[in-house]
Simulated scan of single mutants.
Amino acid sequence: MPHTSRGRWAAGIATAAAIAAAGAIIAVETGRRDGTHGRASTPSTSRSAAAPAAPTAFRLPIALQVQANPYSAVPAAAVVSLSTLGIKVSQSRFAAKMHMTRQGEYDGEDFYGAVNRYLHDTPYQVNNVGGPDSEPDFVMREVAYDVGVLQRAPMLSVWGERLPWHKGTERGRKVDHMVVAVGYDRSKGTVTVFDPWPDTGGVRTLPVATLARTLQIGGLYFIYQRSWSWETTTPTASPRLSPGGGPR
């Protein structure tokens, strides 16, 4: 999220560095800037009925890292997600692979393609669904499968100002941001996400209904195994976006 002050950003980085020095699982890494979602399938896209059932609750024990600067939420989220698939890449390297400009702009298709190129030699691939009309049950089902069955961390493109912990801290509307789902609890109706923003982010748990309302169109990047049977839908067009949110 680019809407911040230098003082708040410096304080957030200092806090994250202190946590890392104390031996926690958060680390600061240099990188570049960010953007938003890739191509979107309609919210009806889902796993086949043959998919294994997810446990009632699960939390991934994974290493996390905050974004390197006010514009690098997407590379940071991608790095965390890819790490759960056994792939190591830096924020700066991923930003280059998705052709992110020095001004923090990129094409959603380039982001989508970059993620799947890193997954080329694995049995996995990502697709993206969701949007304003996503039902909470749908979001929970997809997150629970990725986290609880595959034990991988899906990415979610969100509007930053809609996240409860950013309320009142962002100027304007549709502030582009990305988080990573790292846990869920179906009995409580909650999802745990990692927000790479170092100031007010971190590991946060929120109702799945609240999370569903934060999603951008095509904002839920679910992970699947290519050998499985899937329903198919026609992807919607992906606009080119700038770090503040709206299409160029």
Rank of each mutant, 00 (worst) to 15 (best):
P52R: 05
N69W: 10
Q91Y: 12
R152L: 13
Y118Q: 10
E170G: 05
I87C: 07
H37N: 13
V115H: 09
L64V: 15
R162P: 03
A181W: 10
H120N: 09
M178S: 10
G12A: 05
V80R: 01
A53Y: 00
W165G: 01
E105F: 12
G219W: 03
R248T: 15
T101M: 00
G113L: 02
G86Y: 12
A22V: 03
D121A: 12
A10H: 03
Q67E: 14
S92A: 15
I13R: 10
G130Y: 09
R186Y: 05
Y224K: 11
P154D: 06
E161Y: 07
S83A: 15
Q125N: 04
P75Q: 07
A76R: 08
H3L: 00
V208E: 06
A53R: 15
P164Y: 06
A73M: 04
R226M: 03
H177A: 03
S48N: 11
V180Q: 02
G183V: 04
L206W: 08
Y71M: 12
F222Q: 05
L215N: 03
L206S: 02
R6W: 03
A24L: 14
T84S: 10
E231A: 00
V193P: 02
Q103C: 07
S157D: 15
G31K: 04
H177L: 01
D176A: 12
T205H: 07
A14K: 15
G35M: 01
A153N: 02
E142P: 03
G219H: 05
M1K: 01
R152G: 13
I62W: 06
L206I: 08
I62L: 10
E142S: 14
G172A: 01
K88N: 15
S229K: 14
G183F: 01
P239K: 06
I13G: 03
G86D: 09
G23M: 09
D195C: 02
G218S: 08
G201M: 00
Y184R: 06
K88R: 15
A77D: 07
D185N: 15
A78H: 10
